[in-house]
Write a protein that binds this DNA or RNA. Sequence first.
RNA 1: GGACGGGUGGCAGAGUGGUUGAUUGCGGCGGUCUUGAAAACCGCUUUACCGAGAGGUAACGGGGGUUCGAAUCCCUCCCCGUCCGCCA
Length: 423
Amino acid sequence: MLDIRLIREQPDEVRRRLAMRRSGAEAMVDQIAVGDGRRRAIIAEVEQLKSERNAASKQIGARKAKGEAAEDLLAGMKEMSDRIAALDRDLAEIEEAQRALLLSMPNLPHEACPAGAGAEDNPVVHQWGQPPVFAFPARDHVAIGNGLGLYDFEAAAKISGAGFVVFRGAAARLQRVLLGWLLDLHTREHGYTEIAPPYLVREGCMEGTGQLPKFREDMFGLESDGLFLAPTAEVPVTNLHREEILPLEALPIRYAAYTPCFRREAGSAGKLSRGLIRMHQFDKVELVQIVVPESSYHVLEELRRHAEVVLERLELPYRTIELCGGDLGFGAAKCYDLEVWAAGTGAWLEVSSCSNFEAFQARRMGLRFKDASGKNQPCHTLNGSGVALARLVVALLENGQQADGSVRLPPALHAAFGDEFLR
RNA sequence: GGACGGGUGGCAGAGUGGUUGAUUGCGGCGGUCUUGAAAACCGCUUUACCGAGAGGUAACGGGGGUUCGAAUCCCUCCCCGUCCGCCA
């Protein structure tokens, strides 16, 4: 959510920055400005009336306390109260409309956000490692998994439908080992506190992090209970401190959490949704930071490194791209994606997205801190995948595949997995 | 799921229709005293919105109602606790 004062005071700047998204969102600025003017006019009128009513009521109370008559003062009071009630209704209506508009308006991209319309315009800012070269035709993870009996998509379809998978044997163990390994890395070496949150969240949390109201159709919900399945641990974890005013000393807050993630992913098809690549349910370790505004861009770089280190330890070639204005997520001001090379699919797969939301989420969820001068102001929030498991496994399988059909795991996992190979 | 009891300021806890945004205690901040500290004493200590300012408005879990006026009365929803039931 943008600061209404910014829209009020610098509408041209807001329009210019929103236009960087090439989504037409800048058209909302005028609509909000008009509503803001109406809102303030009604407030001025109704608060004046309330002030008069309060003064009169006080006098009535004082007279009655002394046992005196107050009929003269009561005359016309009913009409005044009715007028106030009518204005209050108008005000509530317009405030609700304003809130709905503000909630569906995306964040301002960072000043230095790369120009571009879509994914093809995202600049590569960092690249690491060499794609493996095989002396045999490379297979994709579905073929490799079938050979080793790792993934049962048919059984998953039988019990849950398309877009789900059953992990068997070594695949299930690899999943479990990876989760522990990732959480240990981030908690022991990167200074995050481990959180195990609920997977079902209230609507208000989904609104706080920006999934709602705009992206309802992407989410799984339990209508009868008013709950949503978290599409990422970002939602429960960032909302941990919603509606709080944190003392300055509490910041920065660094949380790492594993959760399964549930997404509809409607309408996706093709090579990049085969096998494990695009699922309704997948595992992910997420990093979340709550920080003071001055440090958030520095922290974004740190966060990105925390995710990149994962891929380097696992010896997986990857590249880091910065999202251009047209590809930037709804709430992000700046975002890096980490894409790992998948040698069998022959594609770069997104395994992490590291974003600075500035005050966008904090304002939605009422997350503030008391600054050095004692003033309350919204925190900055960031999050990044550290990393998504399903695609990480795709890369491990496809890059580690051997001529005999087995998969060699990177040394970092040997001890925890108890073997050098998936076989 | 059932029964009962509760939701008031950072915490505890008063307040059952009228100058109550709210007694009091604790905690916190500032000060006096002290070589220093403690104790004692004094003052301050919620949040949001409107307003250039003076100032004003709102909030006692959420929403609605009664009334000139609601923390206080009524309705409704939510949440918490205890016990029972069920259960990993």
